[in-house]
Design a protein around this nucleic acid. Structure first.
Lengths: 187, 187
DNA sequence: GCGAGCATGTAAGTCGTTACATGATTCT
DNA sequence: AGAATCATGTAACGACTTACATGCTCGC
């Protein structure tokens, strides 16, 4: 699929410029898809040419002009067709796990440091997702929210993101400790 | 990085042909990296040309000849340098999550079916990883194993894979139930 | 006879990353 | 004065997917 449908899904949150979308892909959309600003700036004109989104240039004072895009009817149809299409399984794909797999071939100190850094990242991410979830709930219970809210997609995916980062955090820590214990016992 | 270092790490398990590696990437390595056979067949000659692996053609009876590769000294060095190099965070990247995010724009029946199918996949995967873990332990406790085993990398990454698939399973089921409940309440 | 497994590749096309490039305004 | 934010793009390269291509053996 690629970025195309991820952009359409992100625009369900409301119209946005390329710059806005880049931020959205760094926060809420980051649960399930990543995209660089360059990718977005390249993709948006293509989506517009295909009629899936419509853009409007907005003049600003004291700031550069920007082009704001929103989902078109055709874009909604395309997204609906995508939602109903089959998917294939995904797996984790992570540099750091390759490094852990091969841990024995090198001094483990830098790897342990990298794991600790990642643990910090995962902790910040899971806290961020928790904040987003609380904001969506706005005081309601999850049970009620899932019954009555207009859109539950963003909530559901954000829960997956939070759990993923929590599991990352605990795995990073455990792995770092395990490797450290082995270092200690060697010396 | 790409597939390059994943292949070197996979060869730590012992020498293998392209065909063998493709299977290895489908089972144990699948915890953290995916590669198609085509990618491997293209990459192996490149790694050999770079001196990171060495290949030997093996004649077989009643079967096609094959080329078996193993890690060279240079390959080990390269892998060690990689293990000590910095990494950047990864996130989940999943079609199906994009679809859940956009669930409201389409009829949810096909999406629910897709989630249930995925749940089955996740369940099989997590059972497979559990088997691999049990095989590595070979009756020992995890605590002992992690202290005394020659290589702990494969165990550590496999644990992450198992947890990931377990969390997938429970999220797929919960998401399917939530969407189903909303279908029921609309009608 | 047919499908599954063994065994390896090429070619085309799509997708994604990184580096380069610009320029105003606001905050410290 | 320098960094961060707003705002958008191009070009080159590297990575990955999909389709095409071949052919033998073993078990059912």
């Amino acid at each position: 699929m690629s970025i195309r449908h991820a952009v359409l899904a992100a625009l369900l949150e409301g119209e946005a410029s390329g710059y806005d979308l880049a931020k959205r892909f760094d926060v809420s959309v980051a649960n399930f898809w990543h995209a660089s600003p360059q990718q977005l700036y390249a993709e948006l004109p293509r989506l517009e040419a295909a009629g899936l989104i419509s853009g409007q240039t907005v003049r600003q004072q004291g700031r550069p002009d920007k082009r704001v895009y929103r989902l078109s009817g055709q874009g909604s149809d395309e997204l609906a067709a995508f939602v109903s299409s089959p998917s294939r399984p995904t797996a984790i794909r992570d540099d750091l796990m390759v490094k852990v797999q091969a841990a024995e071939v090198a001094d483990s100190a830098p790897l342990i440091a990298a794991l600790e850094e990642r643990a910090g990242h995962a902790e910040r991410r899971s806290a961020l997702y928790q904040q987003l979830l609380d904001a969506m709930l706005a005081g309601r219970s999850e049970r009620d929210y899932l019954r009555v809210a207009d859109r539950v997609g963003p909530y559901l995916t954000c829960v997956r993101g939070r759990t993923f980062e929590q599991e990352n955090l605990s795995w990073y820590r455990w792995t770092a400790e395990t490797l450290q214990a082995r270092r200690d016992s060697v010396s």
